[in-house]
Design a protein around this nucleic acid. Structure first.
Lengths: 155, 155
DNA sequence: GTAGTTGCAAAACTTTTGCACGGCA
DNA sequence: TGCCGTGCAAAAGTTTTGCAACTAC
C-alpha cells in the first residue's frame, strides 16, 4: 500500500510488536488519533475515518482505541454525561476543560509530575495513569460573556 | 415525619433555599449521598434507597443528584467505561482510584489547592471544578499480588 | 492457509425525557 | 388548591458482543 506515510511506520511497528495486525483501517485510526490535538471523541474519529474508509464501523474504532490505550499511546478523558475523549499527549499534564465551548487545553506544568511522585509515596499507591482535569470557563468564552454583559447593559 | 434525623434539617433547608421541595425520597437520597464515604454510583444509590422506598425510580435518583451538584454538595467522578460516581467531599482533593478493586480514596493534599490557583492565573482560566484523579493499584491490592506471586513460585 | 479483523446488527448500559398521577406547601 | 415532583416507560446515546466473510501475514 503506497498510501502509507512515513509516520505510519512507527504505528505499524508498535502494532506488530504486540502481535496486532496492521490493517489499513487501524493505521488510519491510529494516525488520526495520534496526530489529533483537539481531543476527539470516538464518534468524531469514526466520522473522520469514514471519509476515507466509508465501510469502517464504530466498533472497529472502539477496538482500535482500546489497543492504543493498551500500547500507552493515548489517554482516555472521561467527561461528564458519559462523554469520552481521547488524548495522544501522554506526558503528565493538566487538562483545562471549558464547560462552555467544550474545548480542552493541554497544560504542561511541572506540578503534574510532582503530584504523581509525592502522592504515590505518601499513600503507597502505584500510579499508572493520571487525570488532572480542571473544569471551568476558558479565557475566550469568558471574554464573550463580558461582551454579552456590555451589550445587555447598553440595550 | 418523625423519621427525619437531625442532619436532615440542613438538607431540607438547602433544598428549600433554592426553591426545591423537600420530599421524603429526595431527603433519603441526599442523606445517603452526603453521608456516603465510598463514592457510590447512581445505581448503587438507587438500590440502597429502594430498600426504604421500594417505589423510587432511577430517574428520581438522577434528578436529585443533579440538584445536589447544583447545590455544590456533591462532585461527580467520571471513570472509564462511562461509570459515574459521586463524592460528597467537596474540598479540593486528589482521588486515588484503584483499577483492581474499584475503591476510591480521598487524599487531602495542599497540592490540590495549589494547582487550582497557579493554573488559573497562568492560563487565564476560571476554574469551577477540579478532578484530580490518579489511577493505579492501591496498597492492599498490591500486597495481594505479592502474595499471589509467592504462592505461584512455591507451587 | 490460517488466525486475527472487519462490518453489521443487536445487545447491554447509563442517562434523559414526556406525561399522568399524587403529594407537599 | 395549585404546582412541583414522582414513577413509569420509552427514548437517546454510548460502548460491547456475536458471527459470517474477509484479509494481512
Amino acid at each position: 500500500m503506497s498510501e502509507f506515510r512515513k509516520s505510519d511506520v512507527s504505528i505499524i511497528k508498535a502494532l506488530r510488536r504486540k502481535g496486532y495486525k496492521a490493517t489499513p483501517q487501524r493505521i488510519a485510526i491510529c494516525r488520526f488519533a495520534l496526530q489529533s490535538r483537539n481531543h476527539p471523541s470516538a464518534k468524531r474519529i469514526f466520522n473522520k475515518i469514514r471519509e476515507t474508509y466509508p465501510t469502517v464501523s464504530l466498533a472497529t474504532v472502539y477496538q482500535t482505541l482500546k489497543i492504543l490505550k493498551e500500547l500507552s499511546l493515548v489517554q482516555e478523558l472521561n467527561l461528564p454525561q458519559g462523554q469520552t475523549r481521547f488524548d495522544p499527549y501522554m506526558k503528565p499534564h493538566i487538562n483545562l476543560v471549558c464547560l462552555r465551548c467544550g474545548n480542552i487545553i493541554d497544560l504542561d506544568s511541572p506540578i503534574a509530575q510532582e503530584i504523581v511522585g509525592k502522592v504515590a509515596t505518601a499513600a503507597e499507591f502505584t500510579v499508572t495513569e493520571q487525570h488532572l482535569d480542571l473544569y471551568g470557563v476558558c479565557e475566550k468564552c469568558a471574554r464573550k460573556t463580558e461582551n454579552l454583559n456590555l451589550d445587555l447593559s447598553t440595550a
